[in-house]
Amino acid sequence: MPERADRTPDRAGRRSWAVGAALSAPLGLLLTVLPAGVAGAEGVEATGYGAPSTRCEVTDPRLPELSGLVGAGDAMLAMNDGGARAEVFVLDGACAVGDVRAADVDPYDPEDLALGADGTIWLADTGDNNHTRETVALIGLRADGSSTLTRLTYPDGPHDAEALLMAPDGTPYVVTKEVLGASSVYRPDAPLADGATVPMSRVVELGFTLTGTPGGPVGRAGQLLVTGGAVSGDGQRIALRTYTDAYVWPLTGSDVAGALAGAPVRVALPESPQGEAIAFASNHRDLLVASEGLPTAVTLVPAAGEIAPAASTAPADGAAAAAGTLSHEVAPLTAGLIAALVATALVWIGGRIRRRRQG
């Protein structure tokens, strides 16, 4: 039997579409009453990229839920969201599947993909819609055909995460997907090791804000939910995406945490039903994005100029300047209001789910 990547006894919650659908209505109400300090987007400019175009179209029935994407020269690596095996599909320039790389591992909910400097392909088995997993995992597919499995633990309980950033020095960073945009970035406390369980520490807090860009399966909430990540092949840029927008930071060395503390360039992405995949193209500057569903287009978003941090409108002194665009602290009153609204939304969702089960 394939090795299981997860230790959680109940695996029925891999994909909780009922919860995802139920989120839309209460979150839509919640987002209309959030304070301006949370919903503002100061310091982020939608500049630096040109008009998107379709590079190719994925039609292969083996990729119905394309969630992870990596540029590999003229080819691309792609993976499904979910699945009973750890599999990576090699796509040519026309999005046709050629080779398939796989490991005899049964993942729980793989969500993103990264390529290491040594050629190892990393699958982030980090999805946790119901926040019940005791561990998440990184699965490595080595160039020699062997594989590794490292389990990871959060310091503060379960999180759902759909974005993996692999620093040039091989350090992985997991970025959580949070309904109010308050994503956290976690880094393992020790090197990855096959068969080991490694604790992680939170190194950066991000605060994604409403942008007005349409798209995604959950209305305005999709503007806040991190669904994918990428590091450019030359190690000079980082990208994170939501269902609607991409954010690009310059990277120096392997200081991913330091880079994410700065101000990004925001790119409004073409509207798509469930956009979760993002990668850098072979020139290390253009973006490639794709959505779940078949057929699905791999869209090229060209870099139109030098990618540099946007000018911040925050005060220039110490901690206030460090808060920048996406990293912020929430005042106690605001936090209390958010907590109350979230509690109301969760009660509403729970009632919907119970009624569906009883019906």
Score class of each variant (00 low, 15 high):
E42N: 09
L66K: 02
P52H: 06
A41E: 07
C56S: 04
T32K: 14
P52Y: 12
G48C: 05
E42D: 14
L30I: 12
V33A: 12
P64W: 14
E57G: 00
L66M: 13
R55K: 13
T59G: 02
E45T: 10
T59A: 10
T59R: 15
V38S: 04
L29P: 01
L31I: 03
V33F: 06
A39R: 15
L34K: 01
V33N: 04
T54H: 11
Y49F: 15
V44I: 14
T59V: 13
P35I: 00
A36S: 11
A46H: 06
A51S: 11
E57Q: 12
A39G: 13
T32G: 06
L30K: 08
P52V: 05
V38N: 02
L30E: 06
D60A: 15
V44Q: 07
R62F: 02
P52T: 07
G40S: 14
L31H: 12
A46S: 14
A39I: 02
A39S: 15
L63K: 10
T32F: 01
L63V: 10
T59W: 01
A41L: 14
L66P: 00
T54C: 09
T54G: 02
V33C: 03
A51Y: 00
T54A: 15
G37H: 08
L34R: 07
P61G: 04
A41F: 06
R55E: 15
L34E: 07
P61C: 04
L30W: 04
E65W: 05
T59I: 08
G43Y: 06
L66Q: 09
L34P: 00
A41S: 12
V44E: 11
Y49Q: 01
G48M: 07
C56K: 10
L29D: 11
P64R: 10
L34C: 04
R62P: 01
P61N: 00
P64K: 10
G50I: 05
D60Y: 09
R55T: 10
V58S: 06
E57S: 13
G40F: 01
Y49E: 00
R55C: 02
G48K: 02
A41D: 13
A36Y: 03
T47Q: 08
P64V: 14
Y49D: 02
G50Y: 07
V38H: 12
A36R: 13
T54D: 13
L63T: 09
P35E: 03
